[in-house]
Simulated assay, not measured.
Amino acid sequence: MLTVTIEKKWYAQAKMPTLENLQLSIADGEFVALVGPSGCGKSTLLNILSGLDKQAQFQLQWQGQTLDTRQRLPLKMGFMFQDSRLMPWLTVLDNLLLVLNHSAHSRELALHYLQAVGLEAQAHQFPAQLSGGMQRRVALARAFVVQPRLLLMDEPFISVDAPTAERLRHVLLSLWLTSRPMVLFVTHDLREALSLADRVLFLSMNPARVVLEQPIVLPHPRPTGSTELLQLYQQLLTTHPDLLSGIRQEERHTDVI
C-alpha cells in the first residue's frame, strides 16, 4: 500500500495553496483515476510523486515505511505525459532503449513491448513517420518497458480522436492486466475514468481534497459506450450534479467559497 499525504503545495503569486492536507492511498496492483476541475492540482500531484516537483511539503508511506521530502520512493516508476515526448532524432526502438539500462536483454525487452502495442514493424522508423495514435502507443510501450511498480499517467490520450483513444485504452488495459503496476491516471473525462479504473477519486478546487471516492465493480472490458458504464455515469451525475466542478451536492450549502 502506498499512502500519499501532501501537506502543502503553494505556487508563488497564488492566493491559496494548490494542494493542502490531501491524502490518498493506492494498493499494489490497483488502478486509480483522479478526476477534478481544471487547475485543481491533479498534474501537480503526479509531478510531486515523480520527483519533478521538489517544492512541496509531503509525506509518503510505502509498505509501512515513512518517507519524507528528502527521500524518493524505492520503486521503479513510469510516467506518461499529455504528449508523447518521443525523441524525434531516435528511432522507435531507440526511444525505448533510451530508458533501459543497456543490459544484454534490453533490445529483446524493447521489441517485446513494441510487439505488445502492435508496433514491432515500426521499430526502425522515426516518430515523425508515425500517426499521433501510433506515437502514443510508443509512449505506452516506453512507460511499461521499465517494468514499473508505479505508473503515473497525466491525461495521456487527451489530444487524440475518440476511436483512437478507445483503442489506446484497450492497449493500456492489456499491458496493465499483464504486469499489474499501481496506476494513478489523471483525466478530465469521467467516462474514461469509469472505463479504466478500480477506483475513481474526485478532487475539489484549490486547495484540492478528495470529495468522493467511487469504487468500480464492473468487470473489464468496459467500453465507454457500454450500457452498464453509461448507467453508472448518469447515476453519479444525477446523485452529485456538481461533482465535476469539485463540489458534492451535500456540500453545496455548507462550503464557503
Rank of each mutant, 00 (worst) to 15 (best):
L2W: 15
E7P: 12
K8I: 15
W10R: 06
A14P: 00
M16Y: 03
M16I: 01
N21D: 09
L22Q: 09
Q23A: 01
L24V: 02
G29V: 05
G29L: 02
V32H: 09
G36N: 01
P37H: 06
P37K: 03
S38A: 08
G39D: 09
C40V: 04
G41N: 11
I48F: 05
S50C: 01
K54E: 12
F58S: 12
F58Y: 11
D68A: 04
D68P: 07
Q71C: 05
R72C: 09
R72W: 14
L73G: 02
P74C: 03
P74Y: 15
M80H: 01
Q82C: 08
S84Y: 12
T91S: 04
L93R: 13
L96Q: 04
L97R: 10
L97G: 01
L98D: 10
V99G: 00
S103C: 04
S103Q: 09
E108W: 10
A110P: 02
H112K: 05
H112F: 13
L114K: 00
L119E: 01
H124Q: 04
Q129V: 08
S131Q: 02
M134P: 15
M134A: 07
M134Y: 03
R137M: 12
L140A: 09
A141P: 02
R142E: 15
R142F: 00
V145Y: 03
V146Q: 10
R149F: 13
R149W: 01
R149V: 00
M153G: 08
P156G: 15
I158C: 11
S159N: 05
A162L: 15
A165V: 06
A165R: 03
L168C: 00
L168D: 15
L168M: 11
R169P: 10
H170P: 00
H170S: 07
H170D: 14
S174M: 14
L175R: 15
W176H: 08
V183T: 13
T187S: 14
H188R: 06
A193P: 03
A193S: 10
D198T: 12
S204V: 11
P207D: 02
R209L: 13
L212M: 01
L212F: 09
L212A: 11
P215K: 15
I216H: 02
I216K: 00
V217E: 09
H220T: 14
P223D: 11
T224I: 10
T224W: 12
T227I: 15
L229M: 06
Q231N: 12
L232H: 01
Q234T: 06
Q235W: 13
L237D: 04
T238Q: 05
T239P: 09
P241N: 12
L243F: 08
L243T: 11
L244N: 10
L244K: 13
L244E: 06
L244R: 07
S245C: 07
G246N: 03
G246W: 03
R248P: 10
R248Q: 15
E250D: 10
E250L: 05
E251D: 08
H253W: 11
V256L: 12
